[in-house]
Nucleic acid binder design. Structure first.
Lengths: 341, 341
DNA sequence: CAGAATATGACTAACGTAAGTCAGAAATGC
DNA sequence: GCATTTCTGACTTACGTTAGTCATATTCTG
């Protein structure tokens, strides 16, 4: 009636509990014929390991470390909040968080080197792209620690997985939306970036321009405005651009500094027909802007899902379980005023 | 170092394990002063019950039953697939599924009456709105079974929760999208419904017209086309409408029968500028239509999340845990070609 | 076919909690 | 202050699995 246990499997396979355990946990000293008999019995009974009991007996704690950039970036703070508030949502896993100065390769490399491999089973890191970081990351792997990159990837490094969204797709999604929003109204589109030095911003821009050029050629893409994720700079520069180009039909803000966009719109708005606006990251401010109609859509990645995926991937890596190739792929969410959570 | 256990709590509170157990599980026979001491000790130590060990010891199985409509509705089949494929993803929970003829009040009521209250702790039901169903549901509650409605709600019945999306919001979201897609091109919008008798279709239409009338008055909403969720009917009727109204700018398909929309577009397309299309439910067909450019957006609800939420809410109800009021609220997802999962 | 190497079995303690029994202690009523 | 009721403690078994020890059985090697 209830789920079969290893006792049932042992009885059916005609072997002892010890042998079942040896098979189940990949220990040595079992002939392949016996392994087969056990496997058959398991299949016949539909046995499934009781993970709760297993972890309880194993009393293992996967010790995971998250390394996040410090600073006021609301998405990073969202990740951190998720980690600290729900640190105990993951049974048999202890999670610690360390913050390092943002965009500081040396500091990040140092933090990676400082990881105590004897007290840490896995690390999730929001990476910056530089040689020292790559080297520190490789060394961490050599010391036997599982490593995944989070939010920002470091392809062709020795990280084992990436957890985050596909930023090219995110840019394409924004263009699909904005292009449709502006259809029939030829004009200019402004891209508000943080810094083109950041890989993910460059990727978003790439995807955005791919789609816009191919499918909405009536829109002219202005040179991107680098706001350094600072709302004051964004507000000032965007205001100037809007004044200089009276027929801007759309704005795509692909980094932070979204509050600056709202401010520039508030100042220069009123007169002209409001341009359509698509921004990244749902925050208190972008939510408000959606509600009052100054933004049209927000492209979002959910910090909770991101953290959950990172934990799950790291757990799999640490415990030697296979990881599905797209386990780290986070979905790109689209919010309008009417489907806000 | 590691998490405190009831042994630690007992030591700190200066009481025995038995007393801890009595407090923890709400058994009688503990003076309030003692309860307070135990509570204090727990808070001091930051004790959290090890759910895995507790369930293991309790060896309880929550027996949940899902009642779904039969038929070819791909969303319902998605729910069923999710349930059967991942029935063992929920530890300490056994899940069974029963299908009943779709839109058949009497059959549904009968199925509810046939539930064996001694072998079932909770029921999730895709409800239809009728007196017999309400009565059967109330009786099920009286027999001590927890009940939630799934996908279709039955407000003011004795169901304890609803798990699903807010259909008015879904309709509003569709209008926000479609209105923006069609901006600057005044014309007609066609609503393709299944049947206005189904509450959720009526709700979607309501939300859609609310937003469209208020914010996009340049679009004229044609009388809804009732396709009965049958792709042949939808194809034929929509084709006729498109022929009769050469300047249809947008189509909103709020039920099933989405394949019929694609067929009608393929036939009548080519010549006229293609209308913008927003439909519900991501299926193999709607995905294909997004990719080949005949649909612009798909409003979706994720069966996996829906099932997970239903299981979680039922578990809470059965075990007498509190349920957050919006635990059953499922997010309304928006997919374009470029953010398909 | 002996001796060595390898497989397997039997048994045990432990993980953190639940749930029971029973005896004894403390509080209460009168 | 005695009987009665109400609390509390000590102890036990169980849940399904891990992980160990040690003895014995089986297979391989030469």
């Amino acid at each position: 009636m209830s789920r079969p246990t290893i006792h049932d499997v042992a009885r059916v396979a005609g072997v002892s509990l010890s042998t079942i355990d040896r098979v189940l946990n990949g220990r040595s000293g079992v002939r392949s014929v016996t392994q087969q008999r056990v496997a058959d019995a398991m299949r016949e009974l539909g046995y499934e390991r009781n993970a709760a009991a297993a972890n309880l007996a194993r009393r293992r704690q996967d010790r995971l470390l998250f390394i996040l950039p410090a600073g006021t970036n609301s998405f990073m703070r969202g990740l951190e909040r998720e980690l600290t508030q729900r640190a105990d949502a993951w049974q048999f896993t202890s999670i610690s968080v360390r913050t390092v100065p943002a965009f500081d390769d040396a500091a990040l490399a140092e933090a990676l080197q400082a990881v105590d491999a004897d007290k840490t089973d896995g690390v999730a890191v929001v990476a910056t792209d530089s040689a020292v970081v790559r080297a520190a990351l490789a060394e961490l792997r050599n010391r036997g620690v599982a490593v995944v990159t989070l939010v920002f990837d470091l392809p062709s490094s020795r990280r084992q997985h990436f957890v985050g969204i596909d930023n090219v797709q995110a840019g394409r999604t924004a263009a699909s939306l904005l292009g449709r929003f502006c259809r029939g109204r030829p004009g200019q589109i402004v891209i508000v970036a943080g810094s083109m030095l950041v890989r993910d911003h460059a990727e978003r821009r790439l995807g955005f321009e791919q789609v816009l050029r191919a499918e909405f050629p009536e829109q002219q893409v202005l040179p991107p405005l680098e706001g350094l994720d600072d709302q004051d700079i964004v507000a000032a520069e965007l205001e100037a651009v809007l004044r200089a180009n009276p027929d801007v039909t759309g704005i795509y803000s692909l980094g932070a500094g979204t509050r600056g966009v709202a401010r520039a719109l508030a100042v220069s708005g009123a007169a002209l027909p409001r341009p359509s606006v698509v921004v990244h990251e749902l925050t208190a401010h972008s939510r408000q802007a959606l509600l009052d109609g100054s933004f049209d859509a927000v492209i979002h990645q959910d910090p909770a899902r991101e953290i959950a995926a990172a934990v799950s991937v790291l757990q799999s890596l640490v415990q030697g379980r296979p990881v599905e190739p797209d386990a780290g792929r986070i979905s790109i969410e689209v919010f309008l005023r009417d489907n806000l959570p």
